[in-house]
């Protein structure tokens, strides 16, 4: 086996769990999209260019509700704002990745992030590490696009009753929350989420729910940081 093929295979094996998630989830997206009655090519195009699981499910909802473009931009940005903080922890890791870097940043989904951050930390992030990271990103996107195409095809040819399929997104969020809880083992962010999430539902109109809850959570964390820092600064 040639070295190039060997290293692709090495990357592919690491992405297997993501493949098992992306193929059915991408297919679910494809089926859901086809229920809108829009041209079929929109689904694979979204998986090629937007490439965000939750973001694309949200996009289907926005398309169905004929949302305005400003609302679309704000909602997409807010829903994916967690990625801002993924990038922060990879600033050093991606340093010196050269021409691969733009694609590595573009393909930074929840799952790619968790694969990259759960790898053993290489001491020197050399060309080999960057190449592997880029291939993991590319393979993950390949599974996502393939799944989307399968779902688009199934949605167009079979008369699938897709009612309830959108629960896949809720399930995905529940799974990601459990994973975060297992990693962090602290109640603080979840208590903050409970307070701001329920508060937003009670106080805010539907379209500002996410923005309000995530904004309030960031503010609370900022306050928590200030209170937490004060004693340390007083000592020094």
């Amino acid at each position: 086996m040639s070295p190039a093929l060997h290293s692709w295979r090495h990357a592919a094996i690491q992405t297997l769990p993501v493949m098992f998630g992306y193929l059915p989830l991408g297919a679910a997206f494809g089926v859901l999209y086809m229920q809108l009655g829009l041209p079929w090519w929109g689904a694979p195009l979204m998986s090629l260019f937007i490439y965000a699981g939750a973001g694309q499910f949200l996009a289907v909802t926005l398309l169905a509700n004929h949302a305005g473009l400003v609302e679309v931009a704000v909602a997409s940005f807010m829903l994916n704002s967690r990625h801002l903080f993924y990038g922060l922890s990879l600033l050093k890791r991606f340093r010196g990745a050269g021409w691969r870097k733009p694609y590595m940043i573009f393909s930074l989904t929840d799952e790619t992030y968790s694969l990259l951050t759960s790898q053993a930390r290489p001491q020197d992030a050399g060309v080999e590490t960057h190449r592997l990271a880029a291939r993991i990103g590319a393979l993950n996107q390949l599974w996502w696009v393939l799944g989307t195409l399968l779902g688009t095809l199934a949605g167009a040819t079979l008369n699938i009753d897709g009612r309830g399929l959108d629960f896949a997104l809720t399930a995905l969020f529940i799974v990601l929350t459990l994973e975060q809880a297992a990693r962090l083992r602290q109640a603080l962010p979840f208590l903050i989420a409970l307070a701001t999430g329920l508060g937003a539902i009670l106080l805010l109109p539907e379209r500002h729910l996410l923005l309000g809850a995530i904004g309030a959570a960031s503010l609370l964390l900022l306050v928590h940081y200030r209170l937490h820092r004060q004693p340390q600064e007083a000592r020094t």
């Binding site: 903080f85 050093k92 809720t170 990693r183 989420a193 409970l194 999430g197 995530i214 959570a217 820092r229």
Partner: peptide, 28 residues
């Protein structure tokens, strides 16, 4: 600013908070 303590603090606590908010949002 990758190593600024505020960035590290937010990077640690915001992702789990956002994920939990998304669950509440999905179940609204």
């Amino acid at each position: 600013q990758a190593d600024h303590p505020l960035i590290l603090h937010l990077g640690r606590y915001l992702p789990p908070a956002v994920m939990a908010i998304l669950v509440i949002y999905a179940l609204r």
